[in-house]
Nucleic acid binder design. Structure first.
Lengths: 179, 179
DNA sequence: TGACACTATTTCGGTGTCAAACTAATCTCA
DNA sequence: TGAGATTAGTTTGACACCGAAATAGTGTCA
């Protein structure tokens, strides 16, 4: 299951670790208070980049992206949501929701319908085709991505908790770690 | 130093934790092998989104983005790099480098110059204006972002190491944890 | 030495994302 | 009850990014 990592392409493979290099550079500059933070920020960026690239590679044959897969999944497990709820749940702005929903609707995977009592609000629900595609997509991602991360259960939990501290400080509602 | 988190805007604040909700949903579906992975992937996405938004908010007054700040920083601490080296060091594709370099060059912060012996290669170096701006930018980010993460030194190291496992499996060159 | 493979960069088309401006509907309360 | 505030969604403009194709220079080896 070797998937070609984020970007290699024509470029020569990197022979050093940019994250470690930044950390050392920060220390060398006398920025001790910030060196750890730099490492965290770049690590998070790179980790996410790797996982996103892998997800998108796996979803491409299904004509999906991770962003649209997420919208589809949200609607798959609910009976109609407002576009505002979609944006809130996925942490994206209203404009982003509009364009994702536009594309999914154009593909026939979801449909918009008006809110029965509030003329401002637009609801979206998944179509049968969308349900079928999502089920195929989630099966692929489960098999090829989510279940293959090189982290133990304890490590995964720990990683989620560390990031939860950052999220909490930023104002996210964060669930207490499960027992 | 409360910075408005990633996106709240007009939408009501979320009263549940989407990461925890996904994890529970995966378990409820009987996808135990993938539930932890889902949590890790979404956590990484959200953590990065929060930090990127904060960096970009801090850099906006300087007319910089985090992406361009990174290119500038790379050139700040070197005497000329090929565009290929820039892309490799920042894990982005050649086309992305071209457009970042275009913008930075248009702002007078860096300049391109030809490779002395290889006609295919383009080099880039920072200008005095670029050096001044980067120094201002890094001072801001150090003070307002990198040194303010809610993680202890041990937690930061641990987070970096956990993500390093993901990176290593993806083929990244990863430095051994410092002693 | 010349065809062919390889390498570095640019160009192009498509997505996802945000911020800000805009439109339309609903709510509030004086 | 009606003006002004608020809320939901859309539109627009800008950016970062990828993947694939195109361009141009370099290397290789039969």
């Amino acid at each position: 299951m070797m998937i070609e990592p984020s970007y290699i392409g024509s470029m020569s493979r990197l022979e050093y670790d940019p994250i470690d290099a930044s950390h050392r550079y920060w220390l060398a500059q006398g920025w001790e208070d910030s060196a750890d933070g730099v490492g965290v920020v770049i690590s998070l960026m790179r980790g996410w980049q790797i996982l996103l690239a892998r997800a998108n590679t796996l979803l491409r044959p299904l004509d999906l992206t991770f962003a649209r897969y997420q919208v589809l999944g949200l609607l798959r497990s609910s009976r109609g949501l407002t576009l505002g709820q979609v944006g809130t749940s996925l942490w994206v702005t209203p404009g982003t929701v509009t364009s994702s929903v536009d594309r999914l609707e154009a593909s026939g995977l979801i449909r918009r319908y008006p809110h029965p009592s509030d003329g401002r609000t637009v609801l979206a629900e998944i179509t049968p085709a969308g349900r079928r595609l999502f089920d195929k997509a989630v099966k692929t991602l489960n098999k090829e991505l989510f279940s293959t991360l090189p982290l133990s259960a304890e490590e995964s939990t720990h990683l989620v908790e560390l990031i939860a501290k950052i999220r909490a400080e930023a104002g996210d509602q964060v669930a207490r770690a499960e027992p």
